[in-house]
C-alpha cells in the first residue's frame, strides 16, 4: 500500500516538475497555445497506436513531434500564421482521433484516464521515465540557457547576432512535445496545459529574472503536487484536478506580490 502511494506521489511531483521547468519559456515565447494544442493532438496519436496495436507512448510521441514540427515548418515556410496552423492541426487531429477510435469497434478504452490524468496508474517504469524527463529538461535548460533566453526575447534578433536559435528552437519544440506525451497519463490531456502556464505565471509575479523564475516555477509545481496529492488522499478527489486548482490558488496569492509596472 505504501509503495503504491509513493509511486503515485512521485508521479504527481515529477510530472508537475517536468512541465514547470518548461513553463517560463512556454510563457515568454507565447507558445502556451501550442502546448494546449499538442496535448489534444496526442489524442489522435493514442487512437492511431490503438488501431495499429503498436506501442502507445512511442507512436503518440512520434505523431505529436511530427505535427509540432509540421506546424512550425508550415508557419515559417508558407507564411501561415502560427495560430491558424495550430488550429488546423488541432481540429484535424481531433477529427482523426475520433474516426480512428470509431474504427476500432468493440475495443474498451478508458479515455477518461487520458483526458483527466490518473497518477494511481503510474508504474515504476513510468516513474523512471518522468524522472529522466525532469533531468533532461533541467540539463537542456542549464546548457542552452543563453540561447533559450534570447530565443524567448526575439528569435530574429538572436539569429542576427549569430546565435544558433533555429536548432535550439527545434530541440525545444521536440522536448515540449515529449513532455506533453510523457506526462499525459499523469497530468491528463485537458489539464496538462494549465501546468505548463500557471507555475511561470506565478513565478513572474514574484521574481524578475528568468533563472529565478525557473526555480520558483519548479517550487510552485512541487508544492501544488504534494498538496494536491495529499488532498486527493484525504478527500478522495482526483489528483490532477487538485494540482491545477492549487497552482491556480498560488497564482492568485502571487498577484498580491506583483511588482508595479515600471518600478
Amino acid at each position: 500500500m505504501l509503495g503504491f502511494l509513493l509511486h503515485a506521489l512521485f508521479a504527481s511531483v515529477l510530472s508537475s516538475l517536468s512541465l514547470a521547468l518548461f513553463s517560463p519559456f512556454v510563457t515568454l515565447r507565447k507558445v502556451s497555445y501550442l502546448g494546449e494544442a499538442l496535448s489534444h493532438i496526442a489524442f489522435a496519436g493514442i487512437a492511431l497506436a490503438l488501431l495499429l496495436g503498436l506501442h502507445l507512448q512511442l507512436v503518440t510521441l512520434i505523431f505529436v513531434v511530427g505535427v509540432a514540427l509540421a506546424i512550425t515548418w508550415l508557419s515559417r515556410r508558407h507564411q501561415l500564421q502560427e495560430a491558424n496552423a495550430i488550429t488546423i492541426f488541432l481540429s484535424v487531429s481531433m477529427a482523426l482521433g475520433i474516426v480512428l477510435i470509431s474504427l476500432r469497434r468493440g475495443y474498451t478504452f478508458d479515455l477518461a484516464n487520458y483526458l483527466f490524468g490518473n497518477v494511481l496508474l503510474a508504474s515504476p517504469g513510468e516513474i523512471w521515465q518522468l524522472g529522466i524527463l525532469s533531468a533532461v529538461n533541467l540539463a537542456f535548460i542549464i546548457f542552452f540557457f543563453k540561447e533559450l533566453f534570447y530565443l524567448s526575447y526575439n528569435a530574429d534578433m538572436a539569429e542576427f547576432f549569430r546565435l544558433p536559435v533555429r536548432a535550439v528552437d527545434r530541440a525545444f519544440i521536440i522536448l515540449l512535445a515529449a513532455n506533453i506525451v510523457i506526462t499525459l497519463r499523469a497530468a491528463g490531456i485537458i489539464l496538462v496545459s494549465a501546468q505548463l502556464i500557471l507555475p511561470a505565471a506565478t513565478a513572474f509575479n514574484l521574481v524578475r529574472r528568468l533563472d529565478q523564475a525557473v526555480a520558483v516555477s519548479a517550487l510552485v509545481a512541487i508544492l501544488a503536487a504534494v498538496g494536491g496529492f495529499a488532498l486527493s488522499w484525504w478527500l478522495n478527489l482526483p489528483t490532477g484536478a487538485n494540482i491545477v486548482l492549487l497552482e491556480f490558488l498560488l497564482y492568485l496569492i502571487s498577484l498580491a506580490f506583483r511588482p508595479k509596472r515600471g518600478s
Binding site: L28, F143, K146, Y150, Y153, M157, A158, F161, R162, L163
Partner: peptide
C-alpha cells in the same frame, strides 16, 4: 515585461562570439 536588464540586452551583441551552451 520580458525579464531582461539593459546589460542582458547589450550582451546579446556578444553572443555570436561564444560557442553554443557557453
Amino acid at each position: 515585461r520580458f525579464p531582461a536588464t539593459a546589460l542582458d540586452l547589450v550582451l546579446l551583441g556578444l553572443a555570436g562570439e561564444l560557442r553554443i551552451g557557453r
